[in-house]
């Protein structure tokens, strides 16, 4: 009996040493290995790299959920270019909110030669996804200033919260319109779910538009979620919402903002 226990303990220790990362406790075990707070670190990188620039070029994509191969291809394609300042991932980095999904996708995106930020998508809210997202990527609403342009990244997945939290957070948008106002004169708003889609809190859609129009020099908005390319106005007020495709359709949006305006193109890979 004692011998059996002795052998079993030895076996257990041995196998633990051999393959520690193979022991998984649960898909929704929020055990974070590797980089944390990716968005904040990358925002700092973007801000310092773009400080003196008056022309910015950045890629917008999203909905990489469960399409690891295509996401890897996207990273390879971006790395072949040298004219891109940063990448904006429009959310849904995971399909089921499983921690390992986010870690795997983060590791793929870490392969980019340029910094990137990841927005929160509705799929990222499932299970313990929100907790994992906050640890791996950071706050749900955040902003950074590249050159003289502020990028305001918002959580717009209201349905996931069942109205328990203000989504979209209008106060955050108001604060962002005033914070560091000397450092920027243009704004781009990025979100996962667009106004008037089923995820958005459509009761405040017009209020949302009212608030984002308070942002200085609002250029345009980027959205994901719909799994299709789109260029639309939802309020007929001149504010264009550009929708990125899901990554499995193998394309991304490329924006160039110059002192005189902006342009965009769809790049297929």
């Amino acid at each position: 009996m004692r011998k059996v226990i002795f052998i079993s303990v030895q076996l257990l220790i041995l196998s633990c040493l051999c393959a520690c990362d193979l022991f998984d406790y649960h898909p929704y075990d929020v055990k974070i290995t590797g980089d944390r707070d990716v968005n904040r670190n990358n925002c700092n990188l973007i801000e310092s790299a773009c400080q003196e620039k008056d022309t910015l070029r950045f890629a917008v994509m999203g909905d990489t959920q469960r399409w690891y191969d295509e996401t890897q291809d996207f990273v390879n394609v971006i790395n072949k270019r040298s004219d891109i300042d940063f990448v904006i991932h429009g959310g849904d980095i995971s399909d089921f909110g499983v921690t390992d999904e986010m870690l795997l996708q983060r590791d793929i995106m870490n392969g980019l030669n340029v910094p990137y930020v990841v927005l929160i998508g509705n799929h990222d809210c499932l299970g313990t996804g929100l907790e994992a997202y906050k640890k791996i990527f950071g706050p749900l609403n955040f902003s950074f200033i590249a050159g003289h342009i502020k990028f305001v990244c918002l959580n717009t997945n209201a349905m996931e919260y069942d109205y328990s939290e203000p989504v979209p957070n209008l106060t955050f948008i108001e604060d962002e319109s005033k914070a560091d106002s000397t450092k920027f004169d243009k704004t781009v708003v990025c979100m996962h779910s667009r106004p008037y889609c089923e995820q958005f809190n459509n009761n405040v859609a017009k209020a949302f538009e009212y608030y984002i129009r308070m942002l200085p020099g609002l250029q345009f908005c980027t959205v994901a979620h719909d799994h299709r390319l789109s260029v639309e106005q939802y309020f007929n007020d001149g504010i264009v919402y550009y929708g990125s495709d899901r990554i499995s359709n193998r394309d991304y949006l490329l924006f160039t903002i110059t002192p005189n305006g902006y342009s965009y193109e769809v790049v297929y890979f």
Binding site: L22, R66, Y68, D69, D95
Partner: peptide, 17 residues
């Protein structure tokens, strides 16, 4: 489901001990 549709995933990603 993810492993079937992605070459990127290695056995250590989808297997657990």
């Amino acid at each position: 489901a993810s492993a079937v549709s992605n070459h990127y995933l290695k056995p250590k990603d989808y297997l657990s001990l």
